[in-house]
Design a protein around this nucleic acid. Structure first.
Lengths: 183, 183
DNA sequence: TCTGAAATACTGTCCCA
DNA sequence: TGGGACAGTATTTCAGA
């Protein structure tokens, strides 16, 4: 009689009561039908504001609260909806400076790359780290308080992994910054 | 010019207006006391997972459900918590390619900049647009399906605003990508 | 299969000590 | 601040197209 009730934690065993297990798919990944227009609308709404009530979301896309709920759960299970997070205001938290670090290197040994990847993962100021095509090898996107804080970040990074050519570009004006994917 | 940022939270605006959510003027709403360790813990938890129940969040930071609720509301009112959103998986949505566009220009007239800003805001593939310091003038971060889709994006952009020198760098490997600010 | 409506359990919100 | 009462919401169950 216990009720789980956790969000996103428990999966509801399906098909056990009926006894008809198709067993076609590995349990891991519930198949995702191609996104129909309804799913698209739901995703568009949720990636703009995940606080919305199912009732309102349903009204928005023209579905009952219940149908929407089932679709959302399916999208979560399929991994399309990865998480729900709170977006904070960097300026109000004293993180007024966005900096991009353009990195060129001749070190291409797997060991070097592993250390670099680990270092960027460990440093919370680094929001994004990318291996690039073209003449630029790596690009880092970071948030810090000011130029001084950037220098500290830079020092910590080069202390962990050898970087030959690093050039920093500071963001003067953030004209756009969103997590909303084009759907 | 009084746009009280913040997230609505309670009232669900009927017509979803496409307004700009970003007022970065120091219009402090209810005065925010300096973040005490409790607030920090709450923010850290919420920017990692906003799905958590107040009960559990309280247990996590060592406060009652109620006290946590009050703090969260205060942080929202102060604009520290800007919104809650769903994070989607780009790959599962057919957006497998991240591209950075490095832009240099000699056009520095306010009119040009206004058109550029408007164009980037209108194009949903563009996730970030930044005016930079240094020899690089502007940087754009975008998500598209593939190189062909990038070219379409590029064509649409240059059709709207004159761009002399644009060089694209494609992301081969996304080593890190997070919305969690360092707290 | 899919849907919507009602019933239930839980969680956010408010009031009071 | 914490405890409890209330209201609103998510989740389950059930019946129907």
């Amino acid at each position: 009689m216990e009720r789980g009730g956790g969000l996103g934690g428990r999966d509801h065993a399906r098909g056990v009561s009926r006894g008809c297990l198709r067993g076609r798919f590995p349990i891991m990944m519930p198949r995702m039908k191609t996104l129909d227009p309804m799913d698209r609308k739901i995703l568009i709404a949720l990636q703009r504001n995940a606080d919305i009530a199912l009732e309102d979301l349903g009204a928005m896309v023209g579905l009952s609260r219940n149908a929407v709920w089932r679709r959302v759960k399916a999208l979560e299970a399929a991994g399309v909806i990865r998480s729900r997070v709170a977006l904070l205001d960097p300026d109000r938290l004293g993180l007024g400076l966005t900096v991009f670090m353009m990195i060129r290197t001749d070190r291409h040994a797997p060991d070097w790359l592993a250390r670099f990847a680990e270092a960027t993962r460990d440093m919370p100021e680094i929001l994004g780290a990318y291996r690039m095509s073209g003449d630029l090898d790596y690009l880092i996107r970071a948030r810090v308080a000011d130029v001084k804080a950037y220098d500290a970040l830079y020092q910590r990074l080069v202390a962990r992994v050898e970087l030959a050519d690093v050039s920093a570009s500071f963001v003067m004006e953030e004209m756009k910054e969103t997590t909303e994917l084009p759907l």
